[in-house]
Design a protein around this nucleic acid. Structure first.
Length: 223
DNA sequence: ATCCAGCGGC
DNA sequence: GCCGCGGGAT
């Protein structure tokens, strides 16, 4: 017996999937590239990150040791398109240090950990917050954990499933308690939310008239 | 509550 | 030319 929340969440998921099609996330050729992308995309749209990633690829720098060997200044210049580039260069180096010190640079070893243990470990690293940690866990590690972002909170608030000032943890718990744990669904759902948030459910001037989930949304009704 | 500091859309 | 982004740290 499914609750109303469970039904609504799956209705929204199916509408988004029908409208946008499978998003095939994460767009990357390796797990390390996913992790680098997860750091670079903090507070930045993905299009800003692509150039930065390509700059690293062109120099064969998607490699933990090489990223440690390169000067931080030079790394910062390569990832300039991704914004906050000096901070992010430091974040990348801090993560690569962690990976080499604790797992000999071996990601398969790192992903041998339980979800709970690895999540806490990632959160203890400077530069890795909740969204970045969960992106790494879901998209690189294939752990069943739902990635929450600003779009997620805005969309489910407008749909009227959650409150406006919900915390990251509360939002994540709401979703995971009302969805069957599935790496595939969590992967696709977050990607679809990002598309909806960027194209239709924008902060300002949302395109409600053509929104694919307007029938499930209470936002703007009654105006 | 403020810093970080490039990019495309309007 | 402005403005808001797929956050995180202090």
């Amino acid at each position: 017996m499914l609750s109303n929340n469970e039904k609504l969440l799956m209705q929204i998921y199916n509408s988004l999937l029908g409208h946008f099609g499978p998003q095939e996330w994460w767009p990357a050729e390796s797990k390390l590239e996913i992790i680098i992308g997860a750091i670079l995309t903090q507070a930045v749209a993905w299009r800003n990150v692509e150039k930065a990633i390509n700059n690293l690829k062109n120099k064969n720098l998607i490699d933990a040791h090489k990223l440690l060997d390169i000067e931080e200044e030079e790394l910062a210049l390569l990832i300039k398109p991704a914004l906050y580039n000096y901070q992010k260069a430091k974040k990348i180096k801090v993560f690569m240090n962690y990976l080499i010190d604790n797992y000999d640079g071996n990601l398969d070893l790192m992903f041998n950990n339980s979800l709970h243990k690895l999540r806490n470990e990632l959160l203890s690293i400077w530069g890795i917050g909740e969204e970045t940690a969960d992106s790494i866990l879901l998209y690189a590690g294939n752990y069943p954990i739902f990635v929450v972002d600003a779009y997620t909170k805005r969309i489910f608030y407008r749909v009227s499933l959650t409150s406006e000032k919900i915390s990251y943890k509360e939002m994540q718990q709401f979703l995971q308690q009302n969805l069957q744990p599935s790496v595939e669904v969590y992967n696709e759902y977050h990607a679809l939310i990002v598309s909806l948030g960027a194209v239709y459910c924008k902060k300002k001037n949302p395109l409600c008239n053509s929104c694919p989930i307007i029938k499930n949304c209470k936002f703007q009704k009654g105006k």
